[in-house]
Each structure stands twice: as C-alpha cells, then as structure tokens.
Nucleic acid binder design. Structure first.
Lengths: 157, 157
DNA sequence: TTATATGCAAAAGCTTTGCATGGGT
DNA sequence: ACCCATGCAAAGCTTTTGCATATAA
C-alpha cells in the first residue's frame, strides 16, 4: 500500500466532493477510505461491499451509487477485466500505470513505462484524437530469468 | 466488412474446429458466419443472439457456449468495454488492431500502429513476460483537424 | 451407438432503480 | 426546511448450469 498515494487521493476526494455541492456521507467516506487503502489496483464493487460488511454500513445499492459518483468525478479508473465484471482503481493524477496479467497464475503486475506512454500519445495524435484516458492490458507468462528490468516502476499487486 | 478477412477467418474456424475433435453444428456455424461478417469489431453476446433471432436458431445458452468455444480455440479476442460487458471480435492472426473511443459520440475507431506494437513488445520484455496477447483502448475526443495521419490502417467501425 | 450439440428453463451473479427513511447544511 | 445520502427490496441484464433431446460421426 502506497500511503502517500492513499493520503493524496483522499484529499483529492474531499476537495472534489466539496466542489460538487455534494454532502458528506458515511458510506461515501467509508468507500473512499477502503478504496484508498485496498483499491490501488483493480477491485470489483462486490469486493468493496464485502470489505465494508463488518462495519455494518454500505448497502449494495449505496456502494454502487458511490462508486459511480467517484468515477464521474474522475476519481476512479474503470478497467474491464475481460470477464464481464467492471473493475475500478483509484485514479492518481500524478502517475499512470498499466497491468500485465500472468496467464499461468492470474497474478496482476502493475507497471509504468515511459516509452509506451509516448507511443500511445503519438498514436492518438496521428489519429487526430485529444487523449483523455487510455488502458493497456498485457497478457503473458512470466519468464524464469527476466531481461534487465528497465520499467520505471514495477510492483506486484 | 473486410471480405478477405471474413473468408480467411471462416477457413481458420473450420480447420481449428476440425482439429479439436468437435462435430459440426448448426449454431456454431451460424454464429461463426455472423461473427465473420458482423464481428470484426467488438460485439456482445446479446448482439449475436439478436442477430440470429430471425433464423430461429441459436438459443442464448448455445450462443454463449459457442462463443466460449471459439474464444478457447483462440479464434476470438475478448476485450472488455469498460462497462462490465464482455465484447468479442474475430481474431485475425495476420493483423492486430486496437481501439480508440470517441468520448463525445461513443464511436469506436480501429487502428494499428507499429510503434505502439514495438513499445508494447519492449515493455513486456523488460517486465520479463512472454507476451501472448495485449489490449489497448484509447479514449478521447476527435479533433477538427487531425495531424497528418500516419497510422498504417485506420477504419471507422 | 456414442459422444457432442442444442434447446429450454432455472439459477447465479452483477448492476440498476423505486421508494421510503435518515441525515447534512 | 430542503435536498442529498442511505437502506431495503425488487427488477433488469448478462452469464452459467442442469437436464432432456436431437444430431453428427
């Protein structure tokens, strides 16, 4: 858990919620806190509901509503896993990251890569699009001896 | 509709199905033919079911089963649309393509880009993964005057 | 004949919605 | 007071599964 990111994101949530004439609410706060801690990479709404079950708050309906609100405010990224279930993660304005899925184990590794970002920006420019978001998912199998790892940031999730 | 791709893919389906000790079936044939024509870019299973409704064949269950079979045989790509609904398109062994979604209109444009492919291959190598698949979705808004379009292949879908 | 393919119907899981209640400002 | 936030329950939609029947080989 990246505690710096967590705190930065919670601050952002507070500011954006305040700036959208929404009132503070117990469920939204609980969902935001849970996501700041456990939603740094690809969680489903049912997982959030489970995570809040012990607190005796956060009905299914409210959690879906809160997640939709946070997404609309640009505070969450929604990346579909390919299995027909929507997955969310907190959106960090300072860092993009993408995902590589180990087909053998199902493990998800998050990574950032400057060259990939540049290639995406170039492609969008060539296509005549102003880019507002982009998702990349790689699928493969982990090699025994990785080539020299130059990706800037790499973390098992 | 790319009729060359359509025929090439239908041939491939026939060969792979034959090579997997599966028997020929009316629904699988109808689904494959529909996909070869209308599934060159991102369709959902309910759309396939609708498309076959007039033929009086292709129950929901059978279509889901056939699509899963084709996917398992590597004949379909499954790309999540971000909304929690699985989308499929025929997998062409000769060409990858990716998608850019116009956030303003919802239009999907398919494109291929050699530099992007190279950047993805590089990133996978650095991460120590042998790549078996990759999905890229860009989201943005179309500019009035596109910069010189250098993407190799570009088609509205 | 035998395993696969299909249809029907029900069930399971994710997501949304209507309505009444609770709570922030 | 007003109106947003929440819970509950029901409904909607996508997807899976059980079981009986039909069909290819």
């Amino acid at each position: 858990v990246d505690s710096e990111l967590r705190d930065r994101w919670l601050d952002l949530v507070q500011r954006r919620v305040a700036g959208a004439n929404m009132r503070s609410g117990a469920v939204r706060l609980a969902v935001a806190e849970w996501l700041a801690r456990d939603g740094q990479c690809l969680v489903t709404v049912p997982q959030i509901v489970d995570g809040l079950r012990d607190r005796r708050l956060g009905s299914q309906a409210s959690v879906y509503r809160v997640v939709e609100q946070l997404f609309s405010l640009g505070l969450l990224r929604r990346v579909a896993g390919g299995d027909g279930i929507a997955r969310y993660e907190i959106a960090d304005p300072q860092h993009h990251h993408h995902h590589v899925v180990d087909e053998a184990t199902g493990d998800v590794v998050a990574f950032t890569d400057r060259e990939l970002e540049a290639a995406i920006a170039d492609a969008a420019r060539r296509l005549g699009f102003e880019l507002v978001a982009h998702d990349v998912i790689l699928r493969g199998e982990r090699l025994r001896v990785p080539a020299a790892t130059r990706a800037q940031d790499q973390a098992r999730v």
